[in-house]
Simulated scan of single mutants.
Amino acid sequence: MSYLTSVVFNSTKPHTATVIFNHGLGDSGDGISPAFLNLSKILGHVKFIFPNAPNRPITVNNGMIMPAWYDIRSLGDDIETQGEDEEGMLNSVRGINGIIRDEVDSGIPSNRIVVGGFSQGSAMSLLVGLTSEYRFAGIVVLSGYLPLRQKIYRMATESNKRTPIFMAHGVLDTILPYNFGKLSSESLISTGYQVTFKTYNTLSHSINGEELQDLAQFLKNVIPDV
């Protein structure tokens, strides 16, 4: 059982699929979930789970304590030279994996589960998705990037080599620049992953209606109502 708490939108029809969606830095399940209210109505067979990251000090924010999946020691091109918080990331992977196990134990097969996230949460969705022994229906990366890119492919399993990955990024993003998402998608594609990368010319570091429409179509394709 996972040690993480979550906000849950239960399915309104017989529950045959689950989306686990991880929020960004400083946010919460309560903060991100309202953006998905309409999506949960459209996809009545899907249970939506929004886990809450634990509180921790964040180096780039002068050690301020806030909800985060891992510490951020630097921004921009310095991320790799300063070193990523691999220990924090892997601890969060264990928490999210606990939620996935709970869903599988309750009768939802892993190939009817989508793991996704926004910003820092989407880096977690890639880390969980690529390293899991479970085969998922899809992986969703909104305004995110590929974490631990010097070693993630050595950590990866074969389970999700053919799993559809939906990546989306706004051109006006100044928090996680568009190039982070674009280069991450190109790295995944060159390694053989099945990536759809969507560009939004008027989107900053947020989620908008056009992106949610595209996400809805992706979810209908990978976890259709049965």
Rank of each mutant, 00 (worst) to 15 (best):
D30G: 14
D30M: 13
G31V: 05
A35K: 14
F36M: 03
L39N: 01
S40K: 02
I42L: 13
I42A: 11
L43G: 00
K47F: 00
K47W: 00
F48E: 14
I49Q: 07
F50E: 01
P51T: 04
P51E: 05
P51G: 06
A53F: 03
P54T: 03
N55L: 12
N55H: 11
N55T: 13
I58C: 00
T59A: 02
V60N: 02
G63V: 07
G63R: 04
M64E: 03
M66H: 08
P67F: 02
P67S: 09
A68E: 00
W69V: 01
Y70K: 03
Y70I: 04
D71K: 07
I72K: 06
I72A: 03
R73Q: 13
L75H: 01
G76T: 06
D78Q: 15
D78R: 05
I79T: 12
I79W: 05
E80T: 09
T81E: 14
Q82K: 15
E84P: 07
E86S: 14
E87M: 12
L90D: 14
S92V: 02
S92Q: 06
R94P: 06
N97M: 12
N97F: 07
N97I: 06
I100C: 09
R101Y: 11
E103K: 13
V104N: 09
G107L: 05
R112Q: 10
I113L: 05
V114S: 05
V115K: 08
V115M: 09
G116Y: 09
F118E: 07
F118R: 00
S122G: 13
